[in-house]
Design a protein around this nucleic acid. Structure first.
Length: 572
RNA sequence: GGCGGUAUAGCUCAGUUGGUUAGAGCAGAGGAAUCAUAAUCCUUGUGUCCGGGGUUCGAGUCCCUGUACCGCCA
């Protein structure tokens, strides 16, 4: 049995994500996980929340809560929304878990032993009032260059000159507004990525068939300018994973934590360890997914992420894994996405522009969003979400082509034969032609899904739905029924089986509707078709069914206008 | 300022390593059917493939250049 490890980029903890974030990693990852399971793979699908760092601390402070409490609450919120979208994670973890603490410290220790970590001193701004060091963007002051009063610590937005926080005149903390700041000497750990440059370069060259987007971004970081730079992996914060060398203390690093980008990808591994604990499994049960010396040599590991995350997954995280000198599983295929734009502009979390995950589920069932987003996933370039396109596409594809097919077949059968699969009639040329068409299209569909060519797969699935309508149109059971009822019965028996086949093939995209279809047909048989001819005979004559409710109600013009207005501006 | 991406039918997008009359879905037009969520099916595209150069027997597809939009970085 093939084994597939799937991870989705982990969403940051502060706040609810918008649809652009969803389609950029979690949703396509879920599609692939569902498909792989349906094809009989043993799948481990991991996601988590990314909880450390200054933004989380500030969001918690704003909410008036301890950061740990805030993160726990927001984790639950994100977990519920993931469930709402039917994201089928085997585990949805937290980067703040004990497992991640241990693993992160372990990796740091291994890297130190390998001579890949440097201690370097730097001068940074400390705020006495806030009791903390301030990252560049949390310091503002007057620009020494142009006199602009709200220049940030890293750059003046007025004259665009790059700044060092210590250059600012009358600097102040943007957290508290305090001007009681001083410059302190502080030591930090740096991961010597530059020493791993050739190894990473060779590793990327050894990958076959990665999307151009992925490799071009990685190559640029490797070769641009002075090449891959060393990166600081620690911070002067309270909230995070304490700096340790494995189990041992790290002299000089007391009170410091690892920087969020260092521990976040390690959470993929830790999340699998969390899964094992939650399932009451042994250590070996998760290690067989991640250690090539403990059973992971036959695992295929696929990552999903937006293009902004590519450098971390092609360089930083592999640097951690390869640099450890241990046989950890590295990614085999990295699927990256462009951005989804909203109605002529960007989705914006800060301005509340666009549709957020909670709002989306308030107005429509998950399947509507899943279908539209997946069939328009920004694979080769940025894509545009517009309400009119959403309305016409969803109405056409889901309501008219698929939903109405189910409706017309089941209702016709009920009217002429009752709610039971009718008996009689044999397959003729039309049926043979349909089987031939479907066999070819199924083959293509699988090819696209295997290659994670999502838009093409969606197009093929839609064509499979259309083939059913074409068949009905040609077979015209409403017509044959008048002259040859047995023939009509045979046609409808085939059409009812077609509904079951559609449920199975569509389930990765629209799991709820798929379940509703199977349920209406009174069957649990959701086996992936090995042979179309056989699959179209699963429901035998005499098998009872019920006419389901409308699968997909259409989106009305009023709804569309209402939503377009509601989500255009600021989030309530 | 540096870097990257994108510019293809009214709209959203496909177009493998350059090769014959540039495609799909939607929208539009015409027709068929009437089982169905007024849902389906068939037919229908005279597009300067952003502009300008160049390489080539041949370029949407490669090179140079200009323009527009969008990101990323410091």
């Amino acid at each position: 049995m093939p084994r597939t490890l799937i991870t989705s980029a982990i969403p940051y903890i502060n706040g609810i994500k918008h649809l652009g974030n969803l389609i950029g990693s979690q949703l396509p990852a879920d599609l692939y996980a569902r498909y792989a399971r349906a094809r009989g793979h043993e799948v481990m699908f991991i996601c988590a929340t990314d909880e450390h760092g200054t933004p989380a601390e500030l969001a918690a402070a704003k909410a008036g809560k301890p950061v740990a409490d805030y993160c726990a609450e927001m984790w639950q919120v994100q977990k519920d929304l993931a469930d709402g979208f039917r994201l089928s994670f085997d585990h949805f973890g937290r980067s703040s878990s004990p497992q991640n603490h241990r693993l992160t410290q372990h990796f740091a220790g291994r890297l130190a032993e390998a001579g890949l970590i440097d201690e370097r001193s730097s001068r940074q701004v400390y705020s006495n009032a806030d009791g903390r060091f301030l990252p560049d963007r949390y310091i503002e002051g007057t620009c020494p260059n142009c006199g602009f009063e709200d220049a940030r610590g890293d750059q003046c937005d007025n004259c665009t000159k790059q700044l060092d926080p210590t250059d600012l005149i009358n600097p102040r903390s943007t957290i508290s507004g305090s001007t009681d700041l001083e410059v302190r000497e502080t030591k930090h750990l740096y991961l010597k990525q530059s020493q791993l440059k050739d190894k990473l370069d060779a590793w990327i060259d050894s990958q076959d068939g990665w999307p151009v987007l992925t490799t071009s971004i990685a190559k640029k970081w490797l070769h641009d300018g002075d090449g891959l730079q060393d990166r600081g992996i620690t911070r002067d914060l309270d909230w995070g994973i304490p700096v340790k060398k494995g189990d041992a203390d790290w002299p000089g690093m007391e009170g410091k934590v690892f920087y969020v980008w260092f521990d976040a990808p390690i959470e993929y591994i830790a999340g699998t360890a969390e899964w094992a604990e939650a399932q009451g499994k042994a250590e070996a049960d998760w290690r067989r997914w991640w250690r090539t010396d403990e059973g992971a040599e036959d695992v295929r590991y696929v990552q999903f992420m937006g293009k902004d995350n590519v450098p971390f997954h092609t360089l930083s995280f592999p640097a951690t894994l390869l640099g450890s000198g241990e046989p950890w599983k590295t990614v085999d295929y990295l699927k990256s996405f462009n951005y989804l734009n909203y109605d002529g502009g960007q989705f914006s979390t800060s301005r509340g522009r666009g549709v957020f995950m909670d709002q989306a589920l308030e107005i429509l069932p998950a399947d509507y969003w899943r279908w539209w987003l997946l069939s328009h996933v920004p694979e080769s370039s940025d894509t545009e979400f517009t309400w009119t396109a959403f309305q016409t596409d969803v109405n056409k594809d889901l309501a008219d082509v698929l939903g109405n097919f189910v409706s017309r077949v089941t209702k016709f059968c009920r009217a002429k034969f009752g709610e039971v699969v009718p008996e009689g009639g044999n397959w003729g040329a039309q049926e043979e032609a349909l089987i031939k068409t479907l066999t070819g299209r199924l083959d293509t569909y699988q090819l696209h899904m295997d290659a994670i060519e999502i838009r093409k797969a969606a197009g093929e699935l839609r064509a499979i739905w259309v083939a059913g309508n074409e068949y009905l149109q040609e077979a015209a059971p409403w017509s044959t029924f008048k002259t040859d009822p047995a023939r009509a019965a045979g046609q409808i028996r085939l059409a009812l089986n077609l509904i079951r086949l559609y449920a199975v093939l569509s389930a990765p995209f629209i799991p709820d509707a798929a379940r509703a279809m199977l349920s209406a047909l009174g069957t649990e048989d959701d086996a992936w078709p090995e042979d179309v001819r056989v699959a179209l005979a699963v429901l035998p004559a005499g098998h009872g069914f019920t006419v389901p409710d409308v699968l997909f109600a259409k989106i009305t013009d009023d709804q569309r206008e209402d939503w377009a207005e509601r989500f255009a501006g600021t989030r309530a």
